[in-house]
């Protein structure tokens, strides 16, 4: 319970960075923090205490594994997070090359 709430607090720090920061790099950092928090929450939900990683090493071993499905979902999500972060940073780079600032208030002023 407390450990899930800590993940939610990490999520909220990322959301705080996205909503209130005016620097574009800080906003991308907020997105990355949210991705970490969600991935970690999924892996923690699938955990069973005292169980092994879901890899069969002997043919007739007892099936005492942690839940493999959240791990499979998170494996997909981590790679997608890299793609979205790279795309966001490229857009940020193009914005900087045009406006010479990361401040979104300045960029709004310079528009048009």
């Amino acid at each position: 319970m407390i450990i899930f709430l800590s993940c939610i607090i990490l999520f909220l720090i990322g959301l705080y960075a996205i909503v209130t920061k005016r620097n574009l790099i800080k906003i991308v950092i907020g997105f990355a923090l949210i991705e970490y928090a969600i991935n970690l929450l999924f892996a923690l939900i699938g955990f069973r205490s005292g169980m092994l990683a879901p890899i069969i090493t002997k043919v007739d071993m007892p099936h005492k594994f942690v839940d493999p499905i959240p791990q499979a979902l998170v494996l997909t999500a981590i790679v997608i997070a890299l793609g979205t972060t790279a795309l966001m940073l490229t857009v940020v780079l193009r914005i900087y090359n045009r406006y010479k600032t990361f401040d979104i208030a300045e960029i709004r002023k310079l528009k048009g």
Binding site: L40, L44, L52, A53, I55, Q71, V74, L75, I78
Partner: peptide, 18 residues
């Protein structure tokens, strides 16, 4: 490191690379 502690070695490998 937390992925390793919750018995998810595949996730830990991918997370380090990413």
């Amino acid at each position: 490191i937390m992925f390793i502690l919750v018995q998810a070695p595949d996730l830990a490998i991918v997370q380090i690379v990413v």
